[in-house]
Design a protein around this nucleic acid. Structure first.
Lengths: 223, 223
DNA sequence: ACTTTTTATTACCCGTGGGTAATATACGGG
DNA sequence: CCCGTATATTACCCACGGGTAATAAAAAGT
């Protein structure tokens, strides 16, 4: 009667044979939800459709989450966790401030091309309850501090030219965050490649620097 | 009976003396709406509250707009118009690709600190009807083309070091777009100052360049 | 095999908010 | 002064979707 193929990879096979572990299912809900939220936007996405994609019905979701906003929060939590893992590795590896900043740009930029990574910038904290919102805001603040930290560190150790760490962090994080808004899987560039490109260009600059003798700045005579 | 002070500057004085021109009112609706949309997010903001802030009632809004989504669209239209005005001025002024890119960064960055400017990046095109959505997407595409154009121009005229214009445009526009997400009026920096800072740093780079003789890249021996 | 617990289903509630119909009030012109 | 038009108001509709209660079916325990 219903000949639709089952959604990609749901632990709930269309009928019966449901015996996987609880955590696996919870995670599956999350994966499906984050996808739908990104696809349609949090408010347009309905729990009914999340459930449908998993071959279950809406109330079943309430076995794993207290409500829609908790699912949203968990998406954020996943993203934050990924970032923390990255920063931990970077801090452990050591190096100059510039080194760390570049590694961070690469890692963070790559994350922005993943579902849970994009969650960090595509969703709205105002959709969360006060409690969860505070947690997320703290996480975001921590990320910001990390960026600023690497920059001040870099200025101190001479690997980065003096600048306002706050503004520069906003600038770099902003351009990386934006990846979460435009990146589509169909693109030719892999997330890592994008992260790499951004990391280099953000820290390398654009303007041509006159190698030594700056020829009088305006010599673009012919048109 | 109702002793509340009338909202800031509404053409509708609490009772009577409503005779201002239609366009003025339409614009007032727009200004109030965009503020509320930014404050609370499009979906949480209600037309009832928009109306309330203007000392009128919801159905009165329908004298000026066909629906909520049309109001949203007009916010976008305002923002797009502002950008177009800027680019027109920049193109008229001429200069090298780098010059134009810097001017654009300054102008666009400043716009991101305004309500209608922020509309361009804080709202979701998926909230629009197909027709309006297409218009907005076309506008965004045009902005992207402008950035890319200045970059390719700059590469051609030698003011910008060779790079992938697409990626670089994403990078610069991204960091500027992000201003629309974090800028708050209470900050110490004026929008123009931010635009200026970003314009310079984005095009100047961060990494210390060894003035001439690069001393063997790793000399951060002590700690 | 029986009971208990977990997990799912069906059926429903109901708050919210965009949108509309019917109506009233003000304004401008003849 | 009266009428037509523009603009506002009150009162309402109703679709949508998050959330819940009651119940059934399956797993797990003994």
């Amino acid at each position: 009667m219903d000949t639709r193929a089952p959604a990609a990879e749901s632990p709930w096979l269309p009928f019966e044979s449901r015996r996987r572990a609880r955590d696996e299912k919870r995670e599956a809900v999350l994966r499906t939800a984050v996808q739908l939220f990104l696809e349609q936007g949090y408010h347009r996405a309905t729990l009914n459709e999340v459930a449908e994609r998993l071959n279950i019905t809406k109330p079943a979701l309430y076995n794993y989450f207290r409500g829609k906003d908790e699912i949203l929060f968990e998406c954020w939590a996943m993203g934050l966790e990924l970032v923390e893992t990255s920063t931990a590795a970077i801090n452990a590896a050591g190096g100059s401030g510039l080194d760390k900043l570049r590694k961070m740009a690469r890692a963070y930029g790559g994350l922005m091309a993943t579902d849970f990574g994009a969650s960090l910038v595509r969703f709205d904290v105002r959709d969360l309850g006060a409690k969860h919102r505070d947690i997320v805001l703290a996480g975001k603040k921590s990320i910001d501090r990390t960026f600023r930290g690497y920059i001040t560190e870099g200025i101190a150790d001479g690997s980065i030219t003096p600048c306002d760490p706050k503004m520069t962090a906003f600038m770099i994080a902003g351009s990386l965050n934006w990846i979460g808004h435009w990146y589509k899987r169909d693109g030719t560039m892999t997330p890592e490649a994008i992260g790499e490109t951004f990391a280099m260009q953000l820290t390398d600059g654009l303007a041509v620097r006159p190698p030594r003798k700056p020829r009088t700045t305006k010599q673009h005579t012919k048109r």
